[in-house]
């Protein structure tokens, strides 16, 4: 083990690794999978509806090698990425403008507060009516759902910029553009990244839902189709793959955050002391 342990006995070392390092979490994960595996093997849980973990992993391997799963993922990730990017391209500038300008904020705030809490599932029929059941509909829904968290976080970020900071910049003679570029955008960046992270999770969820509702490809369709054709292990394989994708995307964002906002982490951890 690479982990430095202050304990000398083997038992001490093990308990250190389990309770004091991040390896402990992986152990919980493995333990749960083992329970699942044993439960299914000894028919404590329904072995057909809840197949063995090993069976699911075999199925997962199978659909990856056959190219079935990658083909579906190509569509899913394309829709997710397209919708997400659209929401960023529109959401970030809109949020900055609405946050910066009181008048625009007053004009748009009621509309935002109405649209934002409306469940995205409720508007899907409208979108199908207007855009059909193809990619346009799915991308639109993804963009719509991930737009609001980004918008609201960016607005909050801009509103949260310290007055003293703004006044300082103004006494140095900063023009409105310089204020915006050098102060607001920077100071709001932690909120912007938070919005991006919330939205990326939402965009994955919504893509899968939209694919389940209509169409004949994408991971959402794959999972639903596997269930309908009674390919139960494949259905679980789809879910497992989504868990992995979700985990990876989140990790990427954590990396991005620690990279872009080292200053913010340091500052907030200092303030917390």
């Amino acid at each position: 083990m690479m982990v430095k342990s202050p304990h000398q006995s083997i038992l001490g070392k093990m308990s250190y690794i389990i309770f004091r390092t991040r390896w402990g979490g992986s152990l919980t994960f493995i333990a749960l999978l083992t329970l699942w595996q044993l439960g299914s093997m000894f028919k404590l849980i329904h072995p057909v509806y809840i197949p063995k973990v090993t069976e699911i992993l075999q199925a997962l391997y199978g659909v990856i090698v056959s190219g079935e799963l990658p083909a579906h993922y190509k569509m899913t990730l394309f829709r997710m990425f397209a919708g997400y990017c659209i929401s960023l391209i529109i959401g970030v500038p809109c949020g900055l403008i609405i946050g910066y300008n009181r008048a625009v904020f007053n004009l748009t705030e009621p509309v935002i507060e109405l649209c934002r809490p409306t469940p995205v599932s409720a508007i899907i029929p409208i979108v199908i009516l207007l855009l059909g059941v193809g990619n346009e509909m799915k991308i639109f829904i993804v963009a719509w759902a991930s737009f609001w968290p980004i918008l609201v976080n960016v607005i909050d970020g801009v509103h949260g910029v310290d007055r003293t900071l703004m006044e300082t910049a103004r006494t140095f003679g900063a023009t409105p553009w310089e204020l915006f570029k050098k102060i607001i955008l920077q100071a709001a960046s932690p909120h912007i990244v938070t919005g991006m992270r919330v939205s990326v999770a939402i965009s994955l969820i919504v893509t899968v839902v939209a694919e389940m509702l209509a169409g004949n490809n994408g991971i959402g369709f794959f999972i639903l189709d596997a269930e309908r054709t009674f390919r139960i292990p494949e259905m679980y394989a789809g879910v497992f793959s989504l868990a992995a994708i979700g985990y990876v995307v989140n990790r990427l964002f954590v990396l991005l955050e620690s990279f872009v906002m080292a200053w913010y982490k340091g500052l907030t951890s200092k303030e917390a002391k």
Binding site: T164, L165, A169, F172, G173, T175, Q186, A187, W263, Y264
Partner: peptide
């Protein structure tokens, strides 16, 4: 300002903070 902790730019290192005024158009 009295409140130095809020008038310095927390995302900039010390030298870049001192540069701030100089970078402006003025």
């Amino acid at each position: 300002f009295q409140d130095y902790s809020r008038s310095l730019l927390p995302w900039r290192k010390v030298l870049k903070n001192v540069c701030f005024g100089l970078e402006l158009k003025r």
